[in-house]
C-alpha cells in the first residue's frame, strides 16, 4: 500500500485539485497554486542532489576501474569542485561565523568584479561556461551543414520543397540577400511567419492533446510508469 497505493493517491489528489483550482479565482485558491509552485522548486533543489550523485558515481566508477580515459573524469571533478567551492565560499563563511562564532573571511576568493558572493562564479561563467557552451553549439553548424550537403537531394516534390524553403530562409538571413533585393529576406520572414507557423501551431495542438490525455491517465492512476518497477 505504501509503495503503490499512496503515491497513486497523492498524484490523484494533487492532480485533481490543480485542475479544479484553475477554475476557482478565490485568493486561497491562488495561494495554493503559489505554494505548490514554491514546493516544486524546493523538490527540484533536492532533485539536483540526485543528479550530482549520479554524475559523481559514474565518474568515480570509471576512475576506480581505471577505464580508458579515466583521467578525464578527474577533470569533471575539478570543474565541479572549483565551481561549487567558489559559489558556496560566502555561504561557508557565513555558516562558520554563525555556528562557530568565528570571524573567518574568504573575501580574497570573492573580490573579482566586486564584493559579491557570485564573484568567483561570475568568472567561471564568463570565461569557462559561456565560451564552452557557445562553442559546443556552434560546432553543430558544421555537422548540420555537412549532413545537409550529403542528404539534401531534390528527388521528389516534397524533398524539393524542404530544400528550397531551407535555402530561402538561410539566404534571407545573410546581408547579401538584402543587398540583392529586399524582397528575399522579407520572403524568408514570411515563410517563418505563415507556413512555418501554421505547421508549428498544428503540431502544438496535437502535442497538447496528447499531453492532456497522458495527464488524465496519470491523475486517474492508469499511467504508473513514473513509479518505476516493483
Amino acid at each position: 500500500m505504501l509503495k503503490r497505493t499512496v503515491p497513486v493517491a497523492i498524484a490523484f489528489v494533487v492532480g485533481l485539485w490543480f485542475v479544479i483550482q484553475y477554475f476557482v479565482p478565490a485568493g486561497w485558491s491562488q495561494q495554493s497554486l503559489t505554494d505548490a509552485t514554491n514546493w516544486a522548486k524546493i523538490l527540484l533543489g533536492f532533485a539536483y542532489i540526485l543528479g550530482l550523485y549520479s554524475l559523481v558515481h559514474v565518474h568515480w566508477l570509471r576512475i576506480r576501474r581505471r577505464q580508458p580515459g579515466y583521467g578525464y573524469s578527474l577533470l569533471v571533478y575539478l570543474g565541479l569542485g572549483v565551481t561549487v567551492a567558489l559559489g558556496m565560499v560566502g555561504e561557508v563563511e557565513k555558516a562558520w561565523n554563525l555556528l562557530a562564532g568565528g570571524s573567518a573571511s574568504f573575501a580574497d576568493f570573492q573580490t573579482y568584479g566586486g564584493p559579491n558572493w557570485t564573484s568567483g562564479v561570475d568568472w567561471i561563467y564568463t570565461y569557462v561556461l559561456y565560451p564552452a557552451s557557445a562553442t559546443m553549439f556552434s560546432i553543430l553548424a558544421f555537422f548540420i551543414a555537412s549532413a545537409a550537403y550529403r542528404t539534401f537531394r531534390a528527388r521528389t516534390l516534397e524533398a524539393a520543397l524542404l530544400l528550397v524553403a531551407a535555402a530561402i530562409v538561410m539566404f534571407g538571413r545573410v546581408p547579401l540577400s538584402a543587398a540583392i533585393d529586399q524582397a528575399i529576406p522579407q520572403f524568408a520572414d514570411w515563410i517563418m511567419a505563415y507556413p512555418n507557423m501554421a505547421v508549428k501551431r498544428a503540431i502544438l495542438i496535437g502535442v497538447t492533446l496528447g499531453m492532456v490525455a497522458t495527464s488524465l491517465r496519470i491523475i486517474f492512476g492508469i499511467e504508473r510508469a513514473y513509479l518505476g518497477g516493483d
Binding site: K41, G79, V82
Partner: peptide
Amino acid sequence: EHLYVGVGLGYSLVLAWFQYI
C-alpha cells in the same frame, strides 16, 4: 568537454542552492 560538464553541473548546483533551497 569533461571540464565543461563538471563546471555546468557545479553552476547548476550553486544556482539550485541560492534560488531554490
